[in-house]
């Protein structure tokens, strides 16, 4: 079982240290398949997606993608994939997480 160290508990993550304090979620968008419908930009709770040249892309800047997968699910073309999952590095660190998997049938 993972636990926080005292050092971690003292350090609250800062949005000014993205990459070091916070690893953002990330999706990759297949530009070939993307039809520019914009559903993903509406579904994204983090405002992390935008349309440019009639194609969806991750917005410039540090929108807090928390890898919910709503864009992946809503995309009618199946053009979006989750690539990285949000992680905090200290106080708010997610614990006991392994590699990503779709729902499994045991």
């Amino acid at each position: 079982m993972e636990h926080l160290t005292w050092k971690d508990r003292r350090h609250i993550e800062s949005f000014l240290r993205i990459g070091r304090d916070v690893v953002l979620g990330r999706v990759c968008i297949d530009g070939e398949k993307c039809s520019g419908c914009g559903f993903c930009t509406r579904a994204c709770p983090a405002g992390a997606l935008e349309l440019a040249d009639r194609k969806a892309r991750m917005a410039e800047g540090n929108a807090l993608c928390f890898s919910c997968g709503d864009c992946v699910a809503i995309c009618p073309e199946g053009a979006i994939d989750l690539e990285a999952y949000l992680q905090f590095r200290h106080f708010f660190r997610y614990l006991d997480r392994g590699e990503a998997q779709p729902p499994r049938r045991f």
């Binding site: 997968g69 992946v72 699910a73 009618p76 997480r97 998997q101």
Partner: peptide, 17 residues
Amino acid sequence: PRGEPDGMVSRETRAVD
């Protein structure tokens, strides 16, 4: 809903004792 938002996605596995 507009469009079809429901669907399966991947998510991190969790350690279970």
